[in-house]
Amino acid sequence: MDTLLFGALLAAALFIIFARKRWIAATGFAVCFIAIALLFAHHVTSTLELSF
């Protein structure tokens, strides 16, 4: 999954360089953001034994 996400980041960066429309860059960014946030959520397995 991590390898795929670095691939997605690479694709988003290349979209920014080669695609001139803002919505393409924003879509690439948004897809990466959501995918990385989901992977982060997968690794957050507990609320820790801390008092918030």
Binding site: D2, F6, L9, A12, A13, I16, A25, G28, C32, F33
Partner: peptide, 9 residues
């Protein structure tokens, strides 16, 4: 690291 790259976009 991904967060840093995302921010650098």
């Amino acid at each position: 690291r991904m967060g840093m790259m995302l921010s650098s976009l």
